[in-house]
């Protein structure tokens, strides 16, 4: 995890009333930003960054244990960082996509907003779509696969640029159900 990302987490906690935010990437990159003394049991690989109330925070260095299959003792080496106590409110809501609020790609391929280059996009932000309406194309193995909305709603954001690759399950649009 990059320093800027940790800084963002810290900012997020500072501007909210949530106690802590934990982000896990892989099993060795786990960062938890917390306001008060964390739970008694701290995972061996968790790095805890305390956020002093309303003070500028120097981002702590990220020292994830070197990942490797071979060293047998990896994973037990990294001791838990000692959490400094802190108090104040915090925000959570990292990048949690609430379920059902996005249209996800059912296949791997290349995302296209329109049936052909230069053509009118299938949908624009603000459009009301009904279930079954084609919202985009994902091309795989030279086959254009039309992706349909699975519910009625309003498109509130497009999350992928035209002609970008997408993977299985990747959110393509945010949709507000109606």
């Amino acid at each position: 995890m990059r320093i800027e990302e940790i800084r963002r987490l810290i900012d997020m906690v500072q501007g909210s009333d949530v106690d802590e935010v934990e982000v896990t990437r892989w099993w060795v990159h786990r960062v938890r930003v917390t306001r008060r003394a964390p739970r008694a049991v701290v995972d061996g690989q968790t790095q805890v960054y305390a956020v002093p109330p309303a003070a500028p925070v120097a981002a702590a260095p990220v020292a994830a244990p070197a990942p490797s299959v071979a060293p047998p003792d990896q994973g037990v080496v990294a001791p838990a960082a000692t959490p400094a106590p802190a108090t104040a409110p915090a925000v959570e809501e990292a990048e949690q996509e609430q379920e059902g609020l996005t249209i996800n790609s059912p296949i791997v391929g290349t995302f296209y907003v329109a049936p052909s280059p230069g053509a009118e996009p299938f949908v624009q932000v603000g459009d009301h779509v009904t279930r079954g309406k084609t919202v985009c194309i994902v091309e795989a193995m030279k086959i254009m696969n039309e992706i349909e909305a699975e519910q009625d709603g309003v498109i509130i954001e497009r999350l992928v640029d035209d002609a970008e690759p997408v993977e299985f399950g990747q959110p393509l649009f945010k949709i507000r159900p109606s």
Binding site: I107, V108, G109, T110, A140, M141, P165, V166, E167, F168, G169, Q170
Partner: peptide, 25 residues
């Protein structure tokens, strides 16, 4: 590249998904 849900029949055994993953990368 994520190519499908946990069941192999819908991920590691879907040739179109694997080939599409090679194409986009």
């Amino acid at each position: 590249v994520c190519i499908g849900p946990a069941a192999s029949a819908q991920s590691y055994l879907v040739k179109e998904q694997v080939i599409a993953a090679a194409e986009i990368t």
